[in-house]
């Protein structure tokens, strides 16, 4: 592989991905002390109307504007919670520290929840609320285009024992939240002019002031399933027992283990549990959440090495 080409691409990418100034221009001095004008001139030719740095700046700005726009589309709820200024600080820092590692911008926010959890200084005093809403927004994106697994055969259901292992429908995302952010998200999406909660990334102008009022939510612990029916994403509140049982199933545990997990710290009367369980299974079956475990595909392995 060409060392010259590798070096050029590394230098150019580093320059393009260098954060912009507050005025959205290219920094004159990079954070590592390198003068950007000299750096640009080292590999980019100037022309009659633009210097090397100005030519680089077109790409530098283009990079950041594209990322900002994608991030803003994906996390309108986070913006509503934090307000524009704090949201921008989060956005710039996150995108700088967690640049895209996927060929698709859809995955841009995949590391946001974990990043927020480790960088509470960016979201104080609303850290937990910000983490909850970002987690919900990411779950929504994931549920929107997740695979659909067909329902199990009646025979499979008829032979359920304690050893049975289910797989949860891939679109189901389970969240343990400290704030009722499901209501907030629905308000955000309605405010964006969308009553279809499945529209990933509604881009209409958001009335931020209205949203901020909604955003001053008092805390209340909720357990939530984000799931998709046909092509629409829904939020469904769960009891803590349901949440624990579904989480255990999703982790690949047999039904008996999931059952134990559900009632580990439960205050539910022992006598009520069988009926509760039956009702849960009935609902989950109707929603198509329970599936037979899939046999993993090794298709790609058979096609051989590429490089």
């Amino acid at each position: 592989m060409s060392g010259v080409l590798v070096e050029l691409q590394k230098r150019m990418a580093a320059a393009v991905m260098e954060p912009l100034t507050r005025n959205e221009t290219t920094r004159r001095i990079r954070r590592d002390g390198v003068a950007m004008e000299r750096e640009a001139a080292a590999f980019i030719k100037p022309n009659d109307s633009l210097s090397s740095l100005e030519r680089l700046e077109i790409y530098n700005r283009q990079y950041w504007f594209r990322l900002y726009s994608s991030f803003e589309d994906d996390f309108p709820g986070l913006q509503a919670v934090l307000g524009r200024r704090q949201f921008e600080r989060v956005m710039r820092a996150y995108l700088d520290q967690c640049p895209s590692i996927s060929f698709t911008l859809r995955d841009l926010g995949s590391r946001l929840h974990a990043w927020l959890t480790n960088h509470k200084e960016f979201t104080a005093p609303k850290s937990r609320l910000a983490e909850d809403i970002a987690g919900l927004e990411w779950a929504h994106i994931e549920a929107y285009d997740a695979a659909t697994t067909p329902p199990p055969t009646p025979e499979f259901f008829a032979n359920v024992t304690e050893e049975t292992v289910f797989q949860l429908q891939p679109s189901v995302r389970l969240l343990d939240l400290s704030y009722p952010v499901d209501d907030l998200m629905i308000a955000v999406r309605q405010d964006a002019g969308s009553n279809d909660t499945s529209t990933n990334n509604a881009t209409a102008t958001r009335k931020v002031s209205t949203l901020r009022r909604v955003a001053n939510l008092p805390p209340a612990q909720i357990w939530l399933a984000v799931h998709r029916q046909e092509f629409t994403v829904y939020y469904k509140r769960l009891t803590p027992e349901e949440y624990r049982m579904l989480t255990a199933i999703q982790a690949g545990n047999a039904f008996g283990v999931a059952f134990e997990a559900a009632f580990a710290n439960s205050t539910m009367d022992e006598a009520d549990r069988p009926a509760f369980l039956q009702e849960c299974f009935h609902q989950w079956a109707i929603l198509g959440w329970l599936c037979e475990p899939e046999i993993p595909s090794h298709e790609f392995a058979r096609t051989g090495e590429l490089q």
Binding site: L5, A13, Q62, R66, L67, P99, F103
Partner: peptide
């Protein structure tokens, strides 16, 4: 892209 990091832009080639 460089080192698995994507710019999501169409960057020009050096014509070598």
């Amino acid at each position: 892209s460089v080192d698995g990091r994507y710019t999501h832009d169409l960057l020009p080639m050096p014509y070598t």
